[in-house]
């Protein structure tokens, strides 16, 4: 699955997710595919702090983090041109209410592992 370029310098993927078992599975799927996983980080403030300190190559973002909408994280990622997609059980019309998520795809929660990996590959190629 992992290309040689991924093996030589693994892409860093930040996982922002507050449900720890879901985060654990996401991390495992990505690690099995050769990515370097940062996180999972469970709060908006910790995620923003981490991105500002060192921007990852890509990010998988949950929408509701312990009752807080993750729009500030999305804004922070956009400002640093970090490609990302959402991993959320919310309906699209709910997500659309938040301008920070404009033009950002949602792969749903939980996403199938193969879907997750192909979505991430597409994101990093773009």
């Amino acid at each position: 699955m992992a290309s040689s370029s991924i093996e030589s310098t693994p892409f860093e993927v930040l996982i922002v997710e507050d449900e720890y078992l879901i985060g654990m599975e996401l991390a495992q799927i990505l690690e099995d595919s050769g990515y370097r996983v940062i996180g999972p980080i469970a709060t908006v403030s910790a995620a923003v702090e981490r991105i500002e300190r060192h921007a990852p190559n890509a990010c998988i973002l949950d929408v509701n983090l312990r009752g807080e909408i993750s729009a500030p994280v999305a804004d922070c990622l956009k400002a640093r041109h970090v490609p990302f997609f959402l991993s959320s059980g919310y309906k699209q019309e709910t997500i659309n209410q938040e301008p920070a998520f404009d033009g950002v795809a949602n792969i749903g929660k939980p996403a199938k592992p193969e879907q997750l990996v192909s979505a991430l590959q597409a994101l990093l190629k773009a």
């Binding site: 449900e19 059980g89 939980p110």
Partner: peptide, 17 residues
């Protein structure tokens, strides 16, 4: 909305298990 969100997360977690 919060309850619905929790339900979905709970089901997602059960699927992981």
């Amino acid at each position: 909305a919060e309850t619905r969100h929790r339900m979905k997360n709970l089901i997602a977690t059960v699927k992981v298990i």
